[in-house]
Each structure stands twice: as C-alpha cells, then as structure tokens.
Design a protein around this nucleic acid. Structure first.
Length: 600
DNA sequence: GTAGGGTTAG
C-alpha cells in the first residue's frame, strides 16, 4: 500500500496492472476484506478488468467460498467482461480439490459450462482434471479426461506430459501407463525440467522399465540439467523398488562425490535405500547407511527414525531398538504413533505378544497417545500369528469400546485369527456382525481369507458357496482365492468342481453357473499361477488327467493367447507323470506358507 | 498482473 501511495503521489500514470498487483498482494496475504475494499476502489477508478475479477475469485476460492466466486463470475458478465480460460480453470481447480465429494462430482458440469461459454479447455484445464484421478476413479472419468487431452488444440507441453504420467501412476493400471508412456515419448516434446524428469523416472519405475529409467537419468545428467532433491528421490525410489538397493546406494555415493550434487542428498533419499536393504533383510547394510548419514550430517526426521525401527522389526533385530530410540531422544524427536506401531509389529513378528501389549501401555502412559485402527490391526495380526484367539477377541472389544472403527483390513485379520483356530463359523459370524454394525462391504481380501478358512478346514463346498456370495456382492476374486479352491478340490479329488471353477476363473465355456459373469469371475494373472499349478497336479490321477486334458483343449481353443508351460502341456496331453519339481510344494521365502512356488 | 506438475515411515 505504501509503495502504491508513493507511486501515486509521484504523479506517474497509474494503470490496471498496478492496481491488480496490489489486489493480488492482498489476496496472497489472505486479507480478503482488504481485497474486497480494494476492488471497490478499482471499480470507482475504472481500473477493474478480467484479471481483477480472476484475482478476487481466487481469494474467495482459497477461503472455500464457491458461492461468492460464482456470484463474481455473474457480476463479470453484467459488467461486460467475459470470463476467460483462467476464470474457468480456477473454478475447475476448486471443484476437483473440494473436500466435499458432491462438489467434486460436479466437475464435468463445470467443463460443459466452460465450453458453452465458448472457452476451450487448455493444457492447464487438463492437468487440473488429471490431478483428480486416482486408483478409485471411475473408468468414465479417466476416459473423459484422456479424450479431452486428445481433443485439445494446443500441443502437449511439459507440465501436461508430467501430469499425464503422474495420473497414470496413481490410477494404477499398468496397461494404461505403458500405453501413455509410449504415446507421449514418441511425440517430440523436449523435456527440460528436473520436475518432468522426476515424474518420468517415477513412471518408468512403476512400469518396471529400468532401461528407460536409467536412460532418462543419463540424459538429464549429460545435458547438465541439475537434479533437485526430489528428482534424486524419484530416481533412488525407482531403483530401489525395482529390487536394486545396491545400485541405488552406489548412485547415492556417486552423487555424494559430485561437488554440485552432494548438497542435495537428504534424509528422504537415504530413506528409500534403507527401505530397500530392509526388504532384503540386510540389517548390516542398513546400519552402514545410517552411519554414513550421520557422518554426512544429514538432518533426520521422524520418518527416518521410523524407517530404521521398521528395519529392526522386519529383520527381527529388536535388539537394535534401544540405540535408535536413544538417538531420537538426542535429536529431540518425540516418538509418534507410527513409531510405537512399528515397534509393536516387530514384537508381534517374533511372537513376543507380552512385549507388544506392554508397549501399548507404555505408549499411553509416556506419550499420552491412544492406539488407532492400524495399531489395533497390528495387535490383532500378532494374536493371529501366535494363535491367541481369546486375546484377539479381547483386543477387538477394546477397539470397539475405544470408538475405533474396524475396517475391512480389520475384518480380514479377524478371519485369519478364527481360521487358525479352525473356528470357521465364528469367522463368518464376525464378518456378518461387524460389517452390519459398521456399514462395511467385505472386500476381496476379507472373502479370500474366508475362503481360506473353509479350505483350511476342508469345507470345500462352503468355500465355493462363499465364492458364489462374492459374485452376488460383485466382489472380484483374486488369484489366491481361486488357487486355494483349486488346490482343495484337487486334494479331495472333486475334479468336476475343479473343472467348473477353473472355467469360471479363465472365462471359458462350461463354468459353474454362478460364474457366468465373465468380467467379474475372471481375474488377471490367474493363468500363470493356477493353470500350470493345478493342471499338472491333476495329471497324476487318471480321472483328474481326463478333466485336465479337456480344460487344456478348450483353453487353447477359446483363449489361444494364454501361454501354458510346454512341460505341463506334454504331461497332461500325453498322460505322463509331471516331473517331481512340479508337484513338490515349497513354502514361500517368508515362511508364511501362503504362496506355492513351483520350480520348473 | 490471474490458472496446472515431482520424494520417505506403521
């Protein structure tokens, strides 16, 4: 205001740009009333224009006042000022980022309104819409947004390219991500920003395309585009999550020797590699990374410490916990609920439930924290792992009394708890009771565990009945669900059941009637695991082999694209015995005995 | 002078 006044008194000619700058200053400082008063002044001085209105609209939207923003758009029209692309983009942005689901659902109406006003959606509009897409977005929203991008007159720019790949990653459909990456990268958009390189590296990482990840990284480096901490964070995370923490660690050390880059290494970057070594259960390497972080004077956050504690938990090295807690204390960082929850999981992992319960007590007393849903889930899971049914039920009651709402995750853990104790009826009862009480619709994980409970106690028919219920409730089964049913049916020599189930799972003719809805009954990835596994295990009895042969013939006829291992084909079609390695069950490396691994 | 993009923990 002072600068404006001195400009005015200097006698210089004032224009709307100067007035608008003052208005924006009010808005950026969240002085809504001042902004409104200033706008009135501008109108009096004849200085208000489209930009002024857009700026004031921004202020109302920041304050969450969609109605006031709308009223200003009307006022613009009355004042013969046409709302432009920026006006509508502000409204679109506020719509998609509204906390209210009903407002978010209105976004396509706003777009229509924009088009009706003769304003074409542009790159900015599209990137705003993309921000709204995630794993639970309806197919129609995804298609609609992508169509709008295709229909756009302008070329894609760098920000939009980055927004598209980011959205594809969040949506989580690998095919879509791959298609878009290919489509975008075949165009001639020159990538210059470290932002964009970060997004691309992340996207290629999710697509498991490490060749392209490294290609992007090297291109960025050879063109001397300086990565930021976040770019490096994306890169290290991509390398680690594709199973190469050593490669990531090597890259960090290389950057640490580069005088231009060593300053950008931060705790987030180190965190990814800590996580990677933890997954490999290599506590030794975790400690050496931690040592180097300390040597380099990296600022550690609560996240870093929690990651280190997670290493202790997952590597079953709870002896390392006291040192880390002491370091936290030295750094003046207070443990939060995640800290306690991580340690709790570690105690559960090694079957030390009394330490787990003691920790909860400590947390309440020393930190004044109360357990949340995730913590209760971990406790329940610990009880399930240790087959402590009554303790588990007590935890559930406590959870309810504390007003912590169970989720489907909770239900799935409870089913596991009951399943272990062979209390199949109670597993079903609990799901029924809690899903009613808390308005939950059981998801595929809950059902998978129910099916597992049935199979575990040799109640094949009940397992199949549960699958039927899944179809009625429109829940798509996963590979595990089918795999358990196939295996149990084969063990019980119920080959007609195997036949009907397998045809349903693969979308072949002759499926059990309730599996006739193909898009619901089939499940991606079923071919690789269940077909080879089940067909070969059936081949060892003549009756089973007959069914297996029929399945194989129809599979090749109706789904020629499905690849079946030649060894399996030979042993089924020639009626031979499968090689030893195909029928031998092996426990998965985690020792939880869930997945069956067959070594060809 | 007004609108859009990237990283870590239970």
């Amino acid at each position: 205001m002072n600068v404006f006044q001195s400009l005015k008194s200097s006698g210089a000619e004032l224009n709307s740009v100067v007035y608008n700058t003052v208005l924006d200053a009010c808005v950026e400082c969240s002085k809504l009333e001042k902004a409104e008063a200033w706008m009135e002044q501008m109108k009096k001085d004849g200085m208000s224009d489209v930009v002024s209105y857009n700026t004031l609209i921004k202020a109302h939207l920041q304050a969450g006042h969609m109605g006031k923003a709308r009223a200003l758009v009307e006022e613009m029209r009355v004042a013969q000022l046409q709302p432009n692309c920026i006006t509508f983009n502000e409204i679109v942005n506020a719509t998609v980022s509204s906390p209210d689901r009903r407002v978010r659902a209105e976004v396509w109406k706003v777009i229509q309104e924009m088009q009706a006003a003769g304003v074409k959606p542009n790159q900015v509009t599209c990137s705003i819409l993309l921000k709204n897409l995630n794993g639970s977005s309806p197919e129609s929203d995804i298609n609609h947004t992508m169509q709008l991008i295709n229909d756009m007159e302008e070329q894609l720019d760098e920000v939009l390219l980055s927004s598209v790949v980011e959205a594809c990653v969040r949506i989580g459909k690998p095919d879509l991500l791959n298609t878009k990456l290919r489509q975008l990268m075949s165009g001639d958009i020159k990538v210059n920003g470290s932002h964009t390189f970060g997004s691309l590296i992340k996207a290629y990482g999710h697509a498991r395309d490490m060749k392209s990840v490294w290609r992007c990284w090297k291109e960025m480096r050879t063109r001397h585009i300086k990565p930021t901490s976040i770019t490096v964070g994306c890169m290290i995370e991509a390398v680690v999550s594709n199973g190469d923490p050593d490669g990531a660690w090597h890259l960090i050390q290389e950057l640490g020797e580069d005088p231009h880059c060593k300053g950008i290494l931060n705790a987030v970057i180190y965190c990814s590699v800590l996580k990677g070594f933890t997954r490999e259960k290599n506590a030794g390497k975790v400690w050496s990374v931690y040592e180097e972080m300390q040597k380099r004077n990296i600022d550690l956050s609560i996240v870093t410490y929690n990651t280190l504690l997670d290493c202790c938990a997952r590597c079953c090295r709870m002896d390392g916990v006291p040192d880390i807690l002491a370091d936290m204390k030295k750094a003046n960082i207070k443990p939060n609920i995640i800290t306690y929850s991580t340690m709790l999981k570690g105690h559960c992992q090694v079957g030390d439930l009394s330490a787990a319960f003691k920790l909860v007590k400590e947390m309440r007393e020393e930190a004044g924290l109360v357990p949340d849903e995730i913590m209760y889930n971990s406790l329940l899971d610990g009880c399930a792992q240790s087959s402590l049914v009554d303790e588990g039920l007590r935890v559930l009651r406590e959870m309810e009394e504390a007003g912590v709402k169970p989720s489907n995750f909770t239900l799935s853990v409870l089913v596991k708890l009951m399943s272990r104790a062979r209390r199949v009826d109670q597993a079903f009862d609990l799901v029924k009771e809690l899903s009613g009480k808390y308005h939950l619709s059981p998801n595929s994980h809950v059902y998978a565990n129910l099916v597992q409970a049935c199979c575990f106690s040799k109640q094949l028919q009940r397992g199949i009945k549960t699958l039927e219920e899944m179809m009625e409730r429109k829940v798509q089964p996963d590979k595990r669900t089918y795999s358990m049913l196939f295996r149990t049916a084969v063990q019980q020599c119920q080959f007609d059941k195997v036949d009907g189930l397998m045809r349903g799972a693969l979308g072949l003719s002759g499926a059990l009637p309730f599996l006739s809805n193909r898009s619901l009954a089939t499940c991606p990835g079923i071919e690789e695991v269940a077909v080879s596994e089940t067909l070969s295990s059936m081949a060892s009895s003549p009756e089973g082999n007959k069914v297996a042969a029929g399945l194989l013939v129809d599979l090749r006829k109706e789904k020629p694209s499905v690849r079946v291992d030649p060894t399996v084909q030979r042993c089924v079609l020639q009626g031979g015995q499968p090689p030893q390695s195909w029928t031998q069950e092996r426990r998965s490396s985690k020792g939880k005995g869930r997945a069956l691994v067959f070594a060809p």
